[in-house]
Design a protein around this nucleic acid. Structure first.
Lengths: 224, 224
DNA sequence: TCCCGAGCATTGCGGCAACATTGCGCGAAT
DNA sequence: ATTCGCGCAATGTTGCCGCAATGCTCGGGA
């Protein structure tokens, strides 16, 4: 899961980033409306966290722009605590939720999950294949109801493959799901994650296997 | 799918070429307006990526020429990031979309797909024959909804035949769909791809067969 | 009708690039 | 201090692809 954080206060951004990482969320952080606009153009995020005041203007005005572009990524607006008008305007403009600052990170996570789960038409929250199932909003795979613990990167790989189960995922798409664009990968790190994940799936006898599509990417499929 | 890339920066062209090949797109790359003009005359591309500044002039002026020749191939203009005037002029002149540089390749692919899909009257995105269907924008064949994995070259052959299903495809046209004109084939490599594809279609019982039109080319047809 | 040649089909092979695997060292987290 | 995930790189493996040898088919001409 990858989200965009639009926030100019660096402390705040840092703290949020650390907290969200623990929940296996990949973050792209930008500090201005302009950069945010660019980032949204460049990547289809799972969600956007949007602060109101930015050095180059009002964050809220991004919302109609995004919606006009036919992008229905969930947006959560971060507002000052008593900014009543801001909350309402945000929702009117097409935001999905808001959080008054200061807030407890756990609550933000919960709202994120809620907001992500609220799009059942587009994609169900729980995906099942073989003996394996995956709860998207919690980023949690499980086998016969028992949670499976995976390292962060492998988990992100699995998530990306599960979301497109039975269909191919290009190497590039996979890389985008696993790394944010600050990250610079100059080796076959991605391959090794795939390899390790593959091995674990086999050991667990998960009933799914990662197939290689040479020259294109990968594909997760239930074993027959 | 074959597209023309008009770009004089070699780094850029190289990177784009590599990325697009992974998506099974064959690229012809030219570095000047003159060569581009020639290329458009010689081949009916699925799309054109057009950079603005060329050594021998302004790329945009190709657009009216192309449109005047009654060629409605989608054109995506690659502009410098803040080149507002260029974007607007490009669209006015008859381009279909633009991309500000630098950009992430995934987005370009997405725009390509969007632009290709935007011509539903000319050609639908999903072509079906026998039990086989083919999603043009994703270059993905499927049988009863399940994706069929094919090697790159065979996939390109299948795409070319599907796009003209029931009608003959010249050997030459087929070669153009599978190879760019840098590629130099001095054997019957193309035949062997056709052969292997034919075999697979039979094994899969896909309900379509490749017929040979002696002296001319091939024809894909649903089995009766 | 039979023959013959050109065009096409098929298939094994070798090279090569893409991919897989795994040990290692670093650094972060606990 | 120890563990563990991560990126890296070296090495092993796979499978696509172009090639070419060989066999087959069609169709025209005598």
């Amino acid at each position: 899961m990858r989200i965009l954080l639009v926030e100019d206060e660096l402390d705040m951004a840092g703290a949020l980033g650390a907290a969200l990482s623990k929940h296996n969320i990949v973050i792209d952080h930008v500090s201005s409306v302009g950069d945010a606009r660019e980032a949204v153009r460049l990547h289809a995020y799972d969600a956007i966290l949007l602060d109101r005041q930015m050095p180059d203007g009002e964050g809220l005005r991004l919302i109609p722009e995004i919606r006009a572009a036919d992008i229905d990524t969930p947006i959560i607006v971060l507002t000052a605590h008593n900014d009543h008008e801001g909350r309402i305007r945000g929702l009117d403009l097409g935001a999905d939720d808001y959080m008054g600052k200061p807030f407890v990170v756990e609550e933000l996570i919960a709202r994120l999950r809620a907001v992500l789960r609220r799009q059942p038409l587009l994609s169900p929250d729980v995906i099942t294949a073989g003996r394996l199932s995956f709860e998207v909003s919690h980023m949690e795979p499980s086998l016969d109801g028992k949670p499976v613990i995976l390292p962060r990167r492998e988990l992100l790989v699995l998530a990306a493959l599960m979301k497109r189960i039975g269909r191919t995922v290009t190497r590039e798409a996979l890389a985008n799901a696993v790394y944010n664009f600050d990250a610079e990968i100059q080796s076959n790190a991605l391959d090794s994650h795939v390899s390790r994940l593959r091995k674990k799936l086999a050991e667990l006898d998960a009933g799914v296997a990662i197939h290689t599509i040479r020259g294109i990417g990968y594909l997760l499929k239930a074993a027959e």
